[in-house]
Design a protein around this nucleic acid. Structure first.
Length: 421
RNA sequence: GUGGGCGUAGCUCAGGUGGUUAGAGCGUCUGGUUGUGGCCCAGAAGGUCAUGGGUUCAAGUCCCAUCGUUCACCCCA
């Protein structure tokens, strides 16, 4: 039997409602902040990601689904969306159409990692990118949007962490200090962290190793090395969030793995999911657009993992969708009324009623059971004596009451049912 | 890429130290009303016990391999 590829999942009808619920909340919130949806191709030239995300990052160096197409071009399934959005922004010269763009997306992403709780190879993110302003208000709004969406999904058990990475020059200075601090402690670090010391020293802060954590607790903090402008920007963002009653925790250890971040970074961590607890991550990336060949334009954004969020919702039981319903189920009393039932169904559907009928020539009892299982509000029984009188029995499934209705007057049935919707 | 757990009906799971026809609950179907759901009752269908090999008189049970899955590390949403 052929099965779905490891790390990919079918979203079955019973789950689609949950997804649509989330998607509609995302759209609603984005519309409130006047973000416009953007859709980009599922795959791009590999170079976009290696330049945009960073050649040395894990995502690019070992997690992308990369292949060569028939023309010999190396292409990759998108592992994240920011690079694609920026590419579209540059390619369509959106900066010339307006000075400021606010874009959002909901899209599948692909990374070839080992699947685990909250991590899939095809997963889905929603996110936003605000391009064109360096105003701290935008940083704040990005975080507020993410926070609002999680709140609207009923989530409580999460924490927003925020930090500033400053600008490259101050960050380099800080890394130098970190290297000095760790110089004589190198032997005590875990093997992974020894590697990080060379490749991406900031990430040692993310280590889950006890000893590493103890050592890093005494490390200098990046916030002490921010340039004046970055410091002021960061203070501003915190101030705005505080005024908006969005609680955030400053975490100077929050670094983040993508190369393009400058200044503000943030992450939303849930305590309701497994080890992969980041529901959402984002920050400012003022240098990326220029790096990808555009005019230097400041930007900020976030991405959120839909599967992880839904996992959190499930564990917190935060969503209660009401059961799906049917307006009316047509029960066929006699086998020879098939065509009549079909014709009535056509009419009712044309008039906007969600209508179901039996396709399996089942017994009346079985049809009734089915109507009940489908939560049908009404049942119309067609056939028998009533049919000879050009009538049928309409039953209200909730009250159990039933009455005879004239088949010439299907409009009346439609009106009745519409009125209780 | 590394390490651990687990693979028995559609789903959730039982099946001490190997022993003959592999079970339950839920779900599905049928019946209990010549044409009536939910609750209840009776019954039925549904399993190459992941696959392949090995040990044994005998394997769902023990051993090995493979595949799948899951959790964690790494990293990230």
């Amino acid at each position: 039997m052929i099965k779905a590829i490891a790390g990919t999942k079918d979203i079955l009808p019973e789950n689609i409602r949950l997804w649509k619920h989330l998607e509609s909340l995302v759209e609603k919130e984005m519309v409130l902040f006047n973000f416009k949806e953007i859709r980009t191709p599922i795959f791009e030239e590999t170079a976009l990601f290696s330049h945009g995300i960073g050649e040395a990052t894990d995502i690019v160096s070992k997690e992308m689904y990369t292949f060569t197409d028939r023309s010999g071009t190396s292409v990759s399934l998108k592992p994240e969306m920011t690079a694609s959005v920026v590419r579209a922004f540059i390619e369509h010269e959106l900066n010339k159409k307006a000075n400021f763009y606010k874009l959002f997306y909901i899209s599948p992403m692909f990374r070839q990692e080992r699947p685990q709780a909250g991590r899939l190879r095809q997963f889905h993110q929603f996110g936003a990118e605000a391009i064109g302003s360096n105003d701290p208000i935008v940083d704040a709004e990005i975080i507020i949007i993410a926070n609002n969406i999680l709140k609207n999904l009923g989530l409580k058990n999460f924490e927003i962490k925020i930090n500033s990475l400053g600008i490259p020059t101050s960050r380099e200075k800080y890394k130098e200090e970190l290297r000095k601090y760790l110089g004589d402690k190198l032997d005590s670090l875990s093997e992974d962290s020894k590697k990080r010391f060379k490749t991406n020293i900031l990430r040692i802060f993310d280590s889950k190793n006890e000893t590493d954590r103890k050592i890093m607790a005494g490390a200098p903090t990046i916030l002490d090395y921010l340039d004046d402008e970055s410091r002021e920007h960061f203070e501003n963002v915190k101030q705005l969030l505080s005024e908006s009653n969005v609680p955030v925790t400053v975490d100077h250890k929050l670094v983040r793995g993508l190369d393009y971040y400058t200044n503000t970074t943030f992450e939303i961590i849930s305590k309701s999911v497994g080890a992969q607890s980041a529901l959402c991550g984002g920050g400012r990336y003022n240098l990326l657009i220029e790096q990808l060949g555009g005019k230097p334009v400041p930007a900020t954004g976030f991405a959120a993992g839909i599967e992880r969020i839904l996992l959190a919702c499930e564990n917190e039981k935060s969503i209660n969708l009401k059961d799906e319903e049917l307006d009316i189920y047509l029960v066929r009393l006699d086998k020879d009324k098939k065509d009549k039932v079909f014709a009535i169904a056509n009419f009712l559907r044309k008039n906007g009623l969600i209508t179901e009928l039996d396709y399996l020539l089942r017994s009346v009892k079985a049809q009734m059971r089915e109507a009940n299982r489908l939560n049908s509000k009404y049942v119309l029984m067609i056939g028998g004596d009533e049919f000879l009188r050009n009538a049928a029995v309409l039953k209200n499934m909730q009250s159990g009451e039933q009455e005879e209705v004239i088949l010439d007057n299907l409009d009346g049935i439609v009106k009745r049912i519409e009125s209780v919707k």
